[in-house]
């Protein structure tokens, strides 16, 4: 839908590495205000690295990350959170021994004490999205199921009052049904609260269904970018991400030629 909003986040030719291993090699992408952007890619393509670079956990070697017109690369992660960029990490990364409520309060850590009442109110709102969290509010978060932990991780990021939320594989380890439910709520959050979303996914079917714009990442490079409606119809995407193979000799030959895609 909203690809006409202003560009709030832009990556220009970003290169990041873990020691000698280059994880992303010159990635450029744009995120428009109010949109849902997805980055698709296989294991090890560098999806998480993009998000970690944006949120300041990894410093890029080259290139710039521009947020609201200002470069933010190599800044302190805490500072970046305060600017309105919240990260929902891969594998949820909740605090297992803190209660659900305490986890949510930690999401609001960067907010000043004066906003205490507002934070309480937002916790209630978040419980509205995920009622199960209200029921479990005083249980240690480690006792939640995987899906509930994912809900908690999203809620926790929401409490930082983000302008843009970075989601790292929200579907990881979840059933197709639960994945759909989570994505539907993510979309609701985007529509109702105007939070811009950058979602990194392996599950192309779901991501392309809900996102507005998509990038395809392969071994650290962006190889394709288009609105999701266009991407969904592309032959390569159909074959290698959605698993729809063209029948007949021609399809098989194509498939063999592009085997490196997975």
């Amino acid at each position: 839908m909203s690809l006409d909003g202003e560009i709030i986040l832009q990556l220009n030719n970003v290169e990041s590495s873990y020691g000698p291993v280059k994880a992303i090699r010159g990635v450029s992408l744009k995120v428009h205000q109010g949109s849902i952007v997805t980055v698709l890619g296989a294991n090890g393509a560098g999806k998480s690295t993009i998000l970690k670079t944006i949120s300041g956990i990894i410093d890029p070697q080259k290139g710039s990350v521009v947020y609201h017109g200002e470069p933010i690369q190599k800044k302190d992660p805490a500072w970046i959170v305060r600017q309105g960029i919240a990260h929902v990490p891969e594998g949820r990364e909740i605090f297992p021994l803190l209660t659900v409520r305490e986890n949510l309060l930690m999401g609001a850590y960067t907010r000043p004490l004066g906003e205490k009442a507002a934070v309480e109110q937002e916790i209630e709102q978040v419980y509205g999205y995920f009622p199960i969290l209200r029921e479990r509010a005083n249980q240690p978060a480690g006792q939640l199921s995987g899906g509930q932990q994912q809900m908690l991780a999203i809620s926790r990021a929401l409490l930082a009052k983000p302008t843009i939320m970075l989601l790292d594989e929200p579907s990881l380890g979840l059933s197709p049904k639960l994945t759909r439910e989570i994505f539907e709520i993510i979309v609701r959050i985007n529509r109702e609260r105007g939070v811009t979303l950058l979602v990194v996914e392996q599950n192309a079917r779901v991501a392309l269904k809900y996102a507005d714009f998509g990038y395809v990442l392969e071994v650290g490079r962006i190889v394709m970018e288009d609105p999701c409606a266009v991407l969904r119809e592309k032959e390569d995407i159909k074959e290698f991400y959605l698993g729809i193979k063209e029948s007949g000799v021609r399809g098989t030959r194509r498939w063999k030629k592009k085997k490196t895609w997975r």
């Binding site: 956990i57 305060r82 990490p89 990364e93 605090f95 930082a160």
Partner: peptide
């Protein structure tokens, strides 16, 4: 409990 997550929360 989870140092990495603490970084993500801006702690």
């Amino acid at each position: 409990q989870n140092q990495l997550a603490a970084f993500y929360m801006g702690i």
